[in-house]
Design a binder for these strands. Structure first.
Lengths: 185, 185
DNA sequence: TGGGTCATGTAACCTGTTACATGATTAG
DNA sequence: CTAATCATGTAACAGGTTACATGACCCA
């Protein structure tokens, strides 16, 4: 997955591993966490597959940098990946951790949902601030035809945080009702 | 993660690896895909850590079965895991695949969201049928205090499919508008 | 006689995580 | 003087995926 994310970024413009790391950290982190170590490993592998090429640029005072570019084969691979229709069945640690909560008392689980609620409300506030995030992206995307898709992911983020807020509220309510049905247990 | 899922199931009652596989396949698959090979591997590891114990039961005609039980240490580990507050930052292949779609023409991406829309609507229909799924669960959960949490995960599933439906509709609309702004490109 | 269920696993692989390592420049 | 930034990575580990393997019983 990360391989194709890197191809996607290099398709905007040439970058070093360090810059790719920065984009993931500052802009894509809300949907993809990428470790520096993995980025460099994948770049090596992408090169071995002929999907990217690199040029070493000597610098004064700083270490040399390797600037990567997508090759035509890489761009084709990117398009191929975009067109694949995989049923993206991601495992959900959140639901796993919720499913088995019967082992804990309702009071404890109410606290669990309260924390989730706070998280969702705060995260939504952050995501709704377009200037800060948009500024990050503008370095990467200039073309409005590409920016649409970026906006879609942000919109998803906002909707998801709203889901989490509503869901945690519903769950807390159910647990409150349960405390009345099975009191002092 | 799967380790704790298995502990959670064994905490309901003793099971063989084969039965655990069945529960994941029939009931938990919508939030966690577990491979048979991994289940057996994790059971071995859980035993090595002293979180489960097993008894071999000889059978006529069928291969022997290993019936697993949680130990007190395992139950403690389960509770500990439930109480951890990790920020569950799962990577989203869905958003990764959406973010980079600027490489494809809008018409192609409209088809992408149409497929997503169909998926969400169908999945929601399936999830809203309680009898079929509930029957699967009743073998595992009898206690209403535990069933609440199961219902919460189902409710999340329904809300999530609704999110996917609304989001894909919004995205399609944006792309239709874009076709007018940047026609025949 | 052929496919489904019961019941067990191994081996290799891929991808992501954690911890560690180096070293110069620059801004406060 | 010290923390951040630029810039590179390696090693070991953890967890999930794919492919393969065995074998008997039961139902149609």
């Amino acid at each position: 997955m990360l391989k194709h994310g890197i191809l996607g970024l290099l398709n905007y413009h040439d970058m070093t591993g360090y810059e790719i790391r920065g984009v993931f950290k500052d802009s894509l982190a809300f949907f993809w966490q990428a470790q520096t170590s993995q980025i460099y490993r994948e770049l090596k592998e992408l090169k071995a597959r002929g999907w990217v090429s690199d040029v070493t640029v000597p610098q004064k005072g700083k270490p040399d940098k390797n600037v990567f570019s997508v090759t035509e084969a890489g761009r084709e691979e990117l398009r191929h990946w975009l067109l694949e229709d995989r049923k993206e069945t991601a495992n959900s640690p959140l639901l796993m951790r919720t499913f088995f909560r019967g082992e804990l008392p309702p009071e404890e689980n109410i606290r669990y949902f309260e924390a989730m609620h706070r998280f969702a409300v705060e995260a939504m506030e952050t995501m709704k601030q377009p200037p800060a995030i948009a500024a990050e992206y503008e370095r990467v995307i200039q073309d409005p035809r590409r920016a649409v898709y970026w906006n879609m992911t942000i919109e998803y983020g906002v909707m998801y945080m709203d889901l989490l807020r509503r869901w945690s509220e519903d769950c807390m309510q159910k647990l409150e009702e349960m405390k009345h049905e099975y009191p002092a247990d």
